[in-house]
Design a protein around this nucleic acid. Structure first.
Lengths: 258, 258
DNA sequence: TTGGTCGATTGGTCGTACCAATATACCAAT
DNA sequence: ATTGGTATATTGGTACGACCAATCGACCAA
């Protein structure tokens, strides 16, 4: 027997999540999540335009059939992402997300399958390459002996790890973390976090292949060598070659989307 | 203009701005804001370490002397920023923000005067230059006739604007927005939003000078010219020279901080 | 040891009442 | 007619208190 129509209750089978995702953590049972997604879609679809006033909290709660507290939790998150601004006594106003949203907004969209399209993903992939190159260039330039030693250690950890330890990508992250530290700019690590979230959420296989142990150990070895020689151009070349190979595969996987 | 007696009339698009003071912004009306800041500081200070379990919502609410709903609103925001993760029935766990927080986390820190230090700000300033260069390079490379026309129009709008129209930086933003579009990568605009937020929140004067009409009109003119010639190197050179000049002033202003 | 049960714990949701900032309509003074 | 203040309605902010639902943990049975 098929699912019983259950009004007001979120239907698990109905949740719109990544269609091309291999597997994803089951979840998303919170009411505020659903509200967040729905309101976002309404804004992206132009139902509510920038500068426009949204209905009151009480009205929105009634319309969505949820409690006001749950609605407010969704609004808080929208506020953080720069989609609305709220003034006590005033009301809820739609912000121009293009002018106020941060890059984490993309992460949110992708994670919830909102406005998911090929171009956006490929844009992020390209951004990954550009940011990676930037980081490598600065790392080569600002590398110190301490950084070189830390990088070497991160690499050794990768080499000496058994497959199970490589699974979660923790060691890979540790390597990039050291590169970011070598670049002497603490912003990189946060930037990479968001980019990584987006890419891994879009397709699990992407990083399954990109972080293939055989491939990546050689990659890290070459990167480490270039960085130890302070050869930023070489490091960028190595990284970009591998990254573009990954992206070609990604583009193939995305073929026929939209 | 002498010290403004705090009009406190908040601009719809902008919330409470930090004025020139680099201290904590006033006007933090919401309880959840205060909770958010306090909890964040506790985590950054190592009172609660990554992986550690926080007290229950009910207990936290009692300890902070607030209602549970308010506490939850703060937790939602921390969740968005990647500082905690929450499981129904399980509890609230501290995440390793270095591994999970996005760049907007920096924005949050700066806006609330948390862990505010010179290096972090200068890191962001450097990031602004690097991202700007990246964007200009790609814009020059991927420029189309349509993009060139749109850029020209954005520039004309700046030239033809009266000072009042330049005040809010809307036209400046429009120019950069066109550059981002010319780069044919929609991620740029979101990245620039966060960077801009951080820089402008840190010191209002920074952009007051950086976006000085006299300076910036010439700057935009030169940038436009370089881009129209598809000369990315030239565009980067122009941008970086001006940006480093701004940053020198910024560094001077930050002198003696920490 | 394994697997299940059941009660306690803890986050998730709800309803309601009231507070505080803002918006609006209105009136009085100039 | 304009200005400026005031009363009232609107609307977001906060608080209790109750109950639901997922998880944890101790215990028991096969």
């Amino acid at each position: 027997m098929a699912g019983i129509p259950d009004p007001l209750k979120n239907n698990p089978a109905e949740t719109k999540e990544g269609r091309l995702s291999t597997l994803r953590p089951v979840g998303k049972n919170r009411v505020s999540d659903e509200i967040l997604v729905q309101l976002t879609e309404l804004i992206l679809d132009g139902v509510y335009k920038p500068g426009e006033k949204l209905p009151t909290e009480r009205e929105l709660a009634v319309r969505f059939g949820v409690n006001r507290a749950s609605l407010r939790e969704a609004l808080r998150r929208m506020e953080v992402m720069g989609m609305v601004y709220i003034r006590q006594g005033g009301g809820i106003y739609v912000q121009d997300y293009a002018a106020h949203a941060g890059i984490e907004f993309i992460s949110f969209l992708v994670q919830n399958g909102i406005d998911l399209n090929k171009d956006l993903i490929l844009d992020m992939a390209e951004m990954r390459i550009q940011v990676g190159n930037m980081m490598l260039r600065m790392a080569a330039k600002n590398m110190t002996e301490e950084s070189a030693a830390a990088l070497q250690k991160a690499f050794d950890d990768i080499v000496g790890a058994v497959p199970a330890q490589r699974q979660n990508g923790e060691l890979d992250f540790a390597f990039y973390y050291e590169v970011a530290k070598a670049a002497k700019n603490r912003i990189f690590i946060f930037l990479m976090n968001t980019i990584r979230d987006v890419m891994s959420k879009v397709i699990g296989v992407y990083f399954e292949v990109a972080d293939n142990p055989k491939t990546s150990v050689a990659l890290y070895r070459d990167l480490l060598g270039a960085l130890q020689n302070r050869d930023g151009d070489k490091a960028m070349e190595i990284f970009e070659r591998q990254a573009r190979r990954d992206d070609a595969m990604l583009a193939a996987l995305l073929e026929g989307m939209d």
